[in-house]
Amino acid sequence: MAMIPGDFSQSYERDIAIFRTKTQWVVMVIGLAIMLTFPLFMSNYWLSLFNFIFVTVIAVLGLHLVTGLCGQISLGQSALMCVGAYTVGVLSVKFGISVWACLPLAGLVTGLIGMIFGAPALRVKEFYLAMSTLAAQFIIVWVVSHLEEWTGGQLGMYVPPATIGGFSSASPSNLFYIGFILTIVMIAVAKNIQRTRVGRAFIAIRDNDIAAEVMGINLFRYKLLAFFIGCFFAGIAGWMWAMYLQNINPSQFTLKESLWMLGMVIVGGMGSTTGAVMGAVFVRGLDMIADYASAWAGTVFPTIGEQAFTAFSLIIFGLVIVIFLIYEPRGLYHRWELFKASYRLHPYAY
């Protein structure tokens, strides 16, 4: 068999493709096919966990676009998910709009509201922008819990499942399929935006806003666009969240969630789509392990109690972020790249 010393693209189409070789395609298709068989043998507990991860991945991808690419810190992603979830709730329950039709609507409404809270980005940066997006977190949740006629206030509201024929998203396995497809599509959208004109404009703004402006990028328009797209993702995640729980409630959309999502972007590696997905899966996995560990620790040390250990999981999460910021600020994605590079070069050092 002829060995080719490397893998060279022979057309620009191939050079800019995400999957550049047949092997990569085959591995991806097999991987996705295996995931599609999960509902056949997994318990509802595990499927729910996956659905939860799908929600998180979509929301974190949105935050990745706003913060990771465009460099605009947003601390309100969870509240914007709340907007998405309640858009589905209100539109389907009060106006009788089909839950499916609510999917794009949730994205659009959330995107527009996100633009309002992103507008200060024209004038302020970094910490100050973090403060103004923090306002989104509190204002949105406050408004939702006080619009009792529409949203049921603190008691929350019931959202009907998405159905088509005999297929209902109420069962975790069906929702798994929906979430699976939705996640794949959103990952593709995020990656495609990142590697084309708009994505490069976002990164240009993040890396050097002065140069970006002089090189013809309208800062205000693109910052707003980043917020719109990022919050569109939050809206889609909100729809998925509403399908996942069926009972939505303002108290589900906490500041803690928003911070966690920012943490996932950091842990995964700022500015990489793959990293955002990795971060979301990694932190949710860690969270689950911490839950198990605290339940187990609660039985071993009953005097301290499970509650104390549950609180422990927050400390672990904080610790993980700090450790990443100190030792691997470029995140899991960078580690993955290093691994791939060393694998490619094996057995040579470089």
Binding site: R197, R200, A201, I203, G216
Partner: peptide, 20 residues
């Protein structure tokens, strides 16, 4: 004043912004 996080190629592509 380059876009430090992008590759040389992407820096040039980013400048094509106004022509795309």
């Amino acid at each position: 004043e380059l876009y430090t996080g992008l590759t040389a190629l992407d820096n040039l592509m980013a400048a094509r912004h106004v022509r795309m």
